[in-house]
Design a binder for these strands. Structure first.
Lengths: 145, 145
DNA sequence: TATTGTTATACTCTATAACTATA
DNA sequence: TATAGTTATAGAGTATAACAATA
């Protein structure tokens, strides 16, 4: 016999299923936590890049986040509409838009950072701190290939 | 100062980024491996459920995989077109379709099972077997909440 | 010619609503 | 009335191609 029909076909045996649904659940948690700040988890990644380091062009932000530059346009359109970021042409290269947090954007990010941390901690609350650290380390190792 | 502008904003600090991109990479690997069999990783999950246990209705398969029944329709349309599964009305309740693997479907699944295992192992090759086991266990614990 | 931002477009995935046939 | 399967539709997410402005 080629397959064991007495064994249950548990989708949780598949690593892809585990990764996908863990991500779905975490995203739902963080989105819910960030909602009152007017952003979601995808926006948070962008704000995080803008809050650290030097002012960057749209393309630089997009590349840091591994998203397409056309996707970046849509994210920034929304954040700019909400008064969280501003775009201005780079005087040194007028093809580029320098993107920066507004004062409101900076405050939003500070609140979002705490909210995101809480959501991630809540998600990880049922596993030991050691297992959570190991999870991050293993996932990083897998992506560093 | 509310944020440390000297720290790099590494997206890999965010668990959501790690989960998403680990899944993207694994899916790309498994899809590539399964391609010569005419299926992808999403089809594989369905075949796996059909290969184990008793013949099931579309809805039962969908629920086991946590996918919507409308999504199941599209997956089965394609698998039936390829001669991998057949649908027949349940004599005991003609609203239901019993879904089964064809002989070709059974052979496809047997080959796919080996291919999927190889792809998953290749993905996990750079981390220790212990870390890989721990990864699965932690993700399961997180989903069992 | 190449690059940045933009727009248009398409393709996948997912969810909802409404329809049909059956119960 | 409720359920299983189907269809239509719409919304996110993502990718490609083409265009305008600038280098």
């Amino acid at each position: 016999m080629s397959t064991d029909s007495s064994a249950a076909a548990d989708p949780r045996d598949l690593l892809g299923y585990l990764l996908k649904h863990a991500n779905l659940r975490l995203t739902a948690l963080t989105d819910a936590t960030l909602e009152r700040l007017g952003i979601d988890s995808k926006d948070f990644g962008t704000l995080r890049v803008l809050a650290h380091g030097e002012p960057a062009s749209q393309l630089q932000v997009a590349q840091k986040l591994s998203v397409d530059r056309t996707t970046m346009v849509a994210i920034l359109d929304e954040l700019e509409r909400k008064g969280i970021v501003v775009r201005r042409p780079d005087p040194a290269d007028r093809r580029r838009n320098i993107v920066e947090l507004t004062e409101h954007g900076r405050q939003t990010f500070d609140a979002a950072q705490a909210a995101y941390r809480d959501a991630e901690n809540a998600f990880l609350a049922t596993v030991s701190p050691r297992a959570a650290d190991q999870l991050r380390r293993t996932l990083r190792d897998l992506l560093d290939q």
